[in-house]
Nucleic acid binder design. Structure first.
Lengths: 246, 246
DNA sequence: CGAACTTTTGACAAGCATCAACACGTGTGG
DNA sequence: CCACACGTGTTGATGCTTGTCAAAAGTTCG
């Protein structure tokens, strides 16, 4: 881990986290204030750096301020499966209340984040049950998203899987205020898209080409323009309900 | 829903739930007692009955006392994907803290369960933070299991997927005290196994036959004997870590 | 005993993987 | 500044895993 620790800064930087926490559960001003007062420290991880590796244990929790991370596990034969992607505003439980991490978390891009000690968070929750509900809700949304990925991998073909992934990334980036509507950046190589969709990079390549030819998206590498949003949603059998935004 | 409501019974019947809650997180006697005193009512659902359908909302939570349920979603084209299986001791959040159910929950067998009002549970958590932690932990384990299913569907072939599913069901049934080691009962038809593993029932059939021929399992329909436990684990690339038992 | 479900079997098609090579851009060190 | 290595995207040929369709055999239950 190439971490660059920084001194305490003013808690205003935590507002994206507090905003997302309070977006769906109602938090009082008092709750928010207590959250912002939580002991924390900032750090930066370069693209490719690990936040935690499978099997390690860490009694802390990360709040994403900028950049992208992804969770992944390996199979016996060395195949990698990406399990989730996280971006600004997401609380990334590293091992949370569990004994040790059952998967790795790695930086997709250069990221900025805050560390919280789990013990501090638990203390906070005891005094502010609404925050406990908000955290629990975020975890529930994580399960919901994971289950949509199960559907994606189990019952959709290559084009549907990729389109669905693109739709999810687009909506979540937009909700986090990272992009304006038709222009996005997945920050993923085709090989990583393959690892997220259970395909090979070769097949992802061919399928993405066909999607470009069909006018769904345009633009080369990771910077992409969605030229036909309804078409992309249809191609991905995508409905946003499972994200439980708003 | 074919529900058969019963009057209040003595809370001793809730002990399987309390046991599982307290198995991994330490709960004080006081915590357990408060949990057992939670207002609740019992019900029975016949095999095939729905606990909740996608899109509905319900402000309660179920505790499984006996039988099996499964969560599932449908795709646009009507294909079904099973997302999870639950058995005795599991708390099944129906829509939990979320607005509405993003998938259906259906009874695999005849089941007995208890209903709790979410409001009662939240109240309980405020007074007993340890119980809040225990609930949160159960949800975290649900995410971990869901993510292992993602790996299973994304990066393993038919034989591995099926073997892996069998291993998971075996271990969880054993942990719940439902079976003695070599003899199990998945309570699933081959079509349901297909819907859980992202395959077709035809291919499940052929693959299971080969597993029988290879001496991994024996016994016909859902009642099964695992004749080669290490072999089955190897065939499924199975490690139990992700279940976070004990 | 018949109806409905489940398991089994066969023939065939298709989607995706695999392997291998090449093109392209980017950064880096000689 | 060029040459080179490296990562990523692209293309082609080929084959295997799995899906599809259809029908028969076995099982359960009223």
């Amino acid at each position: 881990m190439n971490l660059h620790n920084q001194a305490f800064k003013k808690s205003a930087q935590l507002t994206p986290l507090a905003d997302k926490l309070g977006r769906s559960c109602s938090l009082s001003d008092d709750d928010v204030e207590a959250f912002l007062a939580l002991p924390h420290h900032f750090m930066t991880v370069e693209a490719g750096g690990y936040l935690i590796r499978e099997g390690e244990s860490a009694a802390h929790c990360c709040g994403m301020l900028s950049g992208f991370v992804y969770r992944h596990r390996m199979t016996r034969r060395g195949a990698r499966q990406i399990l989730a992607v996280h971006l600004r505003g997401d609380m990334v439980e590293l091992n949370a209340t569990l004994d040790y991490a059952d998967h790795s978390v790695q930086a997709l891009t250069r990221i900025e984040l805050v560390h919280f000690a789990m013990s501090d968070i638990q203390e906070l929750i005891e005094d502010h049950p609404a925050i406990g509900r908000a955290f629990h809700r975020e975890t529930m949304v994580d399960v919901s998203v994971a289950r949509e990925w199960i559907v994606n991998l189990g019952r959709r073909n290559a084009r549907e899987r990729i389109a669905h992934l693109f739709c999810e990334l687009a909506l979540r980036q937009e909700a986090a205020g990272l992009c304006v509507s038709p222009n996005f950046n997945w920050h993923m190589t085709q090989e990583q898209i393959a690892d997220a969709t259970g395909l090979t990079s070769v097949h992802v390549n061919r399928t993405v080409q066909r999607m470009r030819a069909d006018g769904l998206i345009s633009g080369g590498r990771s910077a992409v323009t969605v030229t036909d949003w309804p078409g992309l949603q249809a191609a991905g059998d995508f409905t946003s309900a499972y994200l439980h935004q708003a």
